[in-house]
Design a protein around this nucleic acid. Structure first.
Length: 439
RNA sequence: GCGGGGAUAGCCGAGCGGUAAGGCGACGGCCUGCUAAGCCGUUUCCCUAUGGGAUCGAGGGUUCGAUUCCCUCUCCCCGCGCCA
């Protein structure tokens, strides 16, 4: 949620932000209109309440003297009736205003590349040497701005689906039968590999001073609503029938609500958390995309970085979270690029977002493996997370970034590390944890 | 799941029908070579703001008036039951 004071005092900021997002500013105008009406009625209600309070005090002194108070009762009743009517109207307008307010997207960062869609996102960092099949070379050169090392390969890599099925490391058919499409059984050494990735990630963040957290995997509506975009309820989240509970789509949500309704001490900040959890996503809008395999699934495991910071620190810490994720993919020796997400593709919550996109040689594409967002005070305001200062309590900034999501990383390893005989080399950094060099 | 006890400001904690004591902390001021102590004030949210409104876990009810009485719910503690 954005600060209502911006609507009252500097709405131009929001008009400009909406322009940069290539979105209409009607929503901002509607919010201004409803807020004006709300304040007008609030004034009237408060005046009536003041009148009532005065009357009650008067009655109090009379009652203490033991005199008859019945003549005053009628007046009190009249005021009550009036208050009730006005209050109804006030609540009605407040509800409408707040619903609109919550839908106003976050203010975009001035440094984010301005473009209407993802094609305007700007790649700005490249790492590693990519294996590129000759038919994919043109696409690769475009995607890497010719700034990335590569090696041409003359045989196309086998897709992770075919290879993992053939090697007996996943079972999709049975998963589809017992749970549905986009579910999977991971089998054998792949389970070991997944857990090694998670352990390496947890160790890394633990060494960097993050507090490791295994959160609840379900949250109630209030917490979910504070941490997410309103659209998440329809397209993303699984609801538990008959309970006020939603499966989490990322540990970002329980980590964001961890300090809800709290006032933190300034010297506690920044706070760093590393969440480990499964993520459950309906993928309702993804029909036809990545339908096979484990690339886009309803359930995967993820290690997430989450930070609470002072407003003046959030930009710096945003870059820091990105550096951590880069470091992890450097360790795994998976080639990737980093992109600065275009304003039109940011989503409602983020002010700026960096994605790491790994190179998938079998797909011949860069695909998202990490997303690092600075959401400023947008979540903190909804969740009422503040810190104490000399001149009052202020909202913290929150940031979130993937460190690693397991399924997409497994796919990246399978595509980048497969050998001609169908075996998969284990990245050096994982070999000790795995107890194997190849599977 | 059953029985009993709880939830009051940043924290601790009194009040149990007449409109939120007190302490700690933090901040500001006074005092003081400096520090400490002491003294005074402030401390949550909202509003077109020398003023007003809201707020005692949440929601409802009774009352002129509810922190206080009644109902529903949530969470915490103790005991019993069940349980990986």
């Amino acid at each position: 949620m954005i600060d209502i004071n911006i609507i009252r005092k500097n709405p131009e900021i929001l008009f400009e932000s909406q322009r940069r997002r290539f979105q209409s500013d009607d929503i901002v105008k509607a919010a201004i209109e409803y807020d004006n009406k709300w304040r007008e009625i609030l004034r009237k209600v408060n005046d009536l309440k003041a009148e009532k309070n005065r009357l009650v005090k008067e009655i109090s002194t009379i009652a203490k003297k033991g005199e008859d108070i019945s003549p005053y009762k009628k007046k009190a009743e009249e005021i009550d009736k009036e208050i009730e009517t006005m209050n109804k109207e006030l609540n009605d307008i407040e509800e409408k205003r707040d619903a609109i307010l919550k839908r106003i997207p976050n203010i975009v960062d001035n440094d984010a590349p301005v473009a209407p869609d993802e094609s305007g996102s700007a790649p700005f960092y490249f790492h590693g040497r990519a294996d590129v099949y000759r038919d994919d070379l043109e696409n690769f050169i475009r995607g890497s701005l010719n700034k990335m090392e590569y090696r041409l390969i003359d045989r196309k890599r086998v897709s992770h689906v075919d290879l993992l099925l053939e090697r007996g490391l996943i079972n999709l058919e049975t998963a589809a039968k017992v749970a549905g499409s986009r579910f999977y059984y991971l089998l054998g050494d792949l389970v070991l590999l997944e857990n090694s990735i998670e352990l390496l990630a947890l160790k890394m963040l633990n060494n960097k001073g993050f507090k490791l957290v295994e959160p609840p995997f379900m949250l109630n509506r209030e917490a979910t609503n504070g941490a997410t975009d309103f659209t998440a309820f329809e397209d993303t989240l699984y609801k538990i029938e008959g309970e006020d509970l939603y499966m989490i789509a990322t540990s970002e949500h329980p980590l964001a609500s961890y300090h809800s309704d709290e006032i933190l001490e300034e010297e506690m900040l920044p706070l760093f958390y590393a969440g480990i959890s499964p993520c459950f996503r309906r993928e309702a809008g993804a029909h036809g995309k990545d339908t096979k395999g484990i690339f886009r699934v309803h359930q995967f495991n993820k290690i997430e970085q989450f930070a609470y910071t002072l407003p003046e620190d959030s930009k710096r810490i945003h870059k820091m979270l990105l550096e951590n994720a880069k470091e992890f993919f450097n360790l795994l020796e998976i080639p990737y690029r980093v992109i600065d997400i275009a304003t039109g593709d940011l989503g409602n919550v983020a002010s700026r977002k960096f994605d790491i996109e790994a190179w998938y040689p079998a797909q011949g594409q860069f695909r998202e493996v990490v997303s690092a967002s600075n959401v400023l005070d947008y979540q903190a305001r909804r969740l009422k997370i503040r810190y104490r200062t000399k001149d009052g309590n202020k909202y913290v900034h929150t940031l979130n970034s993937t460190l690693v999501a397991t399924t997409r990383t497994l796919v990246a390893i399978v595509e980048n590390y497969q050998q001609e005989d169908g075996t998969i080399l284990i990245p050096k950094a994982l070999r000790d944890l795995m107890g194997k060099d190849v599977i």
